[in-house]
Simulated assay, not measured.
Amino acid sequence: MSLGPFFRSPFTDLTASMVNFQQYDKCGEMEMAAIDCLEAYGTVRGAKKCADILIDFQECAFMNKQIARFRTMRLERHRQGLLGDRKAEDYYAKPPRVDAY
């Protein structure tokens, strides 16, 4: 995960902090913890020292494991449907009533 731009210019300094996760309740605190850790150790040494925090933040931000789990469950559900273990109408749970919310 690269934190610095490839080359520096006044434009990169102006737009450096435009993309962040502070507006999201879910990942804002993890991002701050990761940035604080990297600020304390630096980006090179912090890659080793802060690896667990960075991995947790990346999972929170990009949801790679959650998406992989969803795809695996969906493929299994479709495999069961093709083999006849599951009926086509039973692929997914029944939705709640319209006024159930």
Results as ranks from 00 to 15, higher is better:
Gly28Phe: 02
Arg74Tyr: 11
Cys37Ile: 07
Leu54Trp: 07
Asp56Cys: 00
Val98Met: 14
Cys37Gly: 01
Gly28His: 06
Lys65His: 14
Asp36Asn: 14
Lys94Leu: 15
Gln58Asn: 10
Arg79Tyr: 06
Glu89His: 10
Leu82Gly: 00
Cys50Leu: 03
Lys48Thr: 12
Gln58Val: 08
Ile67His: 08
Ala33Cys: 01
Lys65Asn: 11
Ala47Gln: 14
Tyr92Gln: 10
Lys26Thr: 10
Gln80Asp: 14
Val98Ala: 13
Gln22Pro: 00
Thr72Tyr: 13
Glu31Arg: 02
Asp99Val: 04
Pro95Thr: 05
Leu54Phe: 08
Phe21Ala: 13
Phe70Glu: 15
Met32Val: 05
Ala40Pro: 00
Asp99Ala: 09
Arg79Cys: 01
Ile67Lys: 07
Asp56Trp: 02
Tyr24Val: 06
Tyr92Asp: 14
Val98Ser: 11
Pro96Phe: 12
Ala47Pro: 00
Ala33Gly: 03
Pro96Lys: 10
Asp52Asn: 12
Ala33Ser: 13
Cys27Lys: 02
Met18Thr: 09
Ala16Gly: 03
Asp52Tyr: 07
Gln22Tyr: 13
Ala88Glu: 14
Phe21Ser: 11
Ala33Thr: 06
Ile35Leu: 14
Arg45Ala: 12
Leu82Met: 06
His78Thr: 03
Asn64Trp: 10
Ala34Arg: 04
Glu29Arg: 10
Ala93Gln: 08
Arg97Phe: 15
Thr72Trp: 10
Ala61Glu: 13
Met32Leu: 11
Met73Asn: 13
Asn64Asp: 12
Gln66Tyr: 08
Ala40Met: 12
Asp90Pro: 00
Ala34Asp: 09
Ala61Val: 06
Asp90Glu: 15
Pro96Asn: 10
Lys48Leu: 15
Cys37Gln: 02
Asp52Trp: 05
Arg74Gln: 15
Gln80Phe: 01
Gln22Cys: 03
Glu59Gly: 03
Asp99Ser: 09
Glu39Arg: 05
Arg97Gln: 12
Gly28Ser: 13
Met18Ser: 07
Gln80Thr: 01
Arg45Ser: 08
Asp99Thr: 07
Val44Glu: 11
Leu38Glu: 06
Ala16Ile: 08
Ala16Asp: 12
Met73Ser: 12
Asn64Gln: 15
Tyr91His: 05
Thr15Met: 13
Glu39Trp: 05
Gly42Cys: 03
Ile53Arg: 05
Glu29Thr: 10
Phe21Trp: 15
Glu59Trp: 09
Tyr92Thr: 09
Gln58Pro: 00
Phe70Met: 14
Val19Gln: 13
Met30Ala: 11
Ala47Asn: 08
Cys27Val: 07
Asn20Phe: 02
Arg97Trp: 09
Gly81Ile: 02
Tyr24Asp: 15
Tyr92Arg: 08
Arg45Gly: 01
Ala68Gly: 01
Leu83His: 05
Gln66Pro: 00
Glu31Tyr: 02
Thr15Asn: 07
Gly28Asn: 08
Glu29Phe: 08
